[in-house]
Design a protein around this nucleic acid. Structure first.
Length: 277
DNA sequence: GCGCATGACTCGCCATGAGA
DNA sequence: TCTCATGGCGAGTCATGCGC
């Protein structure tokens, strides 16, 4: 799977790829490289420089240098096209060489400054590192602002300076949604004692942290979705399948992804809830 | 022209085993 | 035990033919 923009930024990489190490791959000490992983290896080393056939028939050509993440130490791993006339590309893992991820870990490769880096980490750590939502420290402040009267808000603005996002955009969306949860309007909502409206939270489908990558504003009525607290917390914290379900329904309601030239898989990747295979 | 069924082919995963 | 070699198999893709 190809690195998304957050992963590229995190690793300061030109481009990269990742996938899960199966227990079989760990046991066999070999990974069949597919799709973008294979493309990355071929474009880095050059197809003519990758050995076709058995490792033992040309060990020198089969052995390729990688930089181990995060230390930067050089490790040499065998990479070959094992079957003549086939495009199957194989990477051999090696404990003695210094790279042998365990089953269930995410292994990754990325190119940076003319080097090809390789590494692995547990899936939980990988998803935490890949999620744009983890960086959204301002969200609690923003949500609180939506449940305040104008008088309270103006007073607090003096302390807080300005909100990074325009609360009026979210308030307009709440009105348009008839003060109901946009994932499922049947979800029960309590009445806020401050706003005297049904309590909702605003969620930017394409996270505000991605603003740097788009010329058009992400703080728009189209990109903001009103969710009940349960659904909003689920988007941020629930198991991947549940979060994907909610985001999929939301994305299908408006054209915001099309407008930003994103696919639903791009969106899942931004939330680090994509299916890693 | 379109939709569907069928078969050939390709790709990649995985099982098994040999050798160091 | 670890590394490497080999090839079978299933899923997916694509081309072709047929019926409507």
């Amino acid at each position: 799977m190809k690195f998304n923009r957050i992963q590229q930024q995190n690793f300061n990489a030109d481009n990269g790829a990742y996938s899960m190490v199966t227990h079989r791959e760990n046991h066999d000490s070999q990974i069949t490289l597919t799709d973008y992983e294979a493309e990355l290896i071929v474009s880095h080393f050059g197809r003519d420089n990758i050995h076709v056939g058995k490792v033992t028939s040309n060990p020198a050509l089969a052995s390729k240098p990688f930089r181990l993440f995060p230390s930067g130490d050089e490790v040499r791993l065998n990479v070959v096209f094992p079957k003549p006339d086939k495009t199957e590309l194989r990477l051999y893992l090696s404990l003695s060489a210094g790279f042998k991820p365990t089953g269930g870990e995410i292994w990754f490769m990325f190119s940076k400054n003319d080097d090809l880096w390789i590494g692995a980490m547990p899936e939980v750590e990988w998803r935490a590192k890949s999620s744009e939502l983890k960086k959204d420290f301002d969200d609690p402040v923003y949500q609180e602002s939506l449940d305040e009267t104008d008088n309270i808000r103006i007073a607090k603005l003096k302390e807080r300076d300005v909100y990074a996002r325009d609360r009026n955009v979210a308030l307009r969306r709440m009105k348009l949604s008839n003060y109901s949860c946009e994932f499922d309007p049947k979800h029960k909502l309590f009445i806020s004692r401050f706003s005297h409206q049904r309590y909702l939270e605003a969620h930017h489908l394409v996270p505000m942290g991605m603003q740097v990558y788009f010329s058009q504003s992400l703080d728009t009525v189209d990109n903001v979705f009103c969710l009940c607290p349960y659904c909003h917390r689920a988007v941020h914290h629930a198991e991947e399948a549940i979060a994907r379900d909610i985001l999929g329904i939301l994305a299908s309601k408006r054209t915001v992804l099309d407008d930003l030239s994103l696919t639903i898989d791009d969106l899942y990747s931004l939330y680090a809830i994509e299916e890693i295979i």
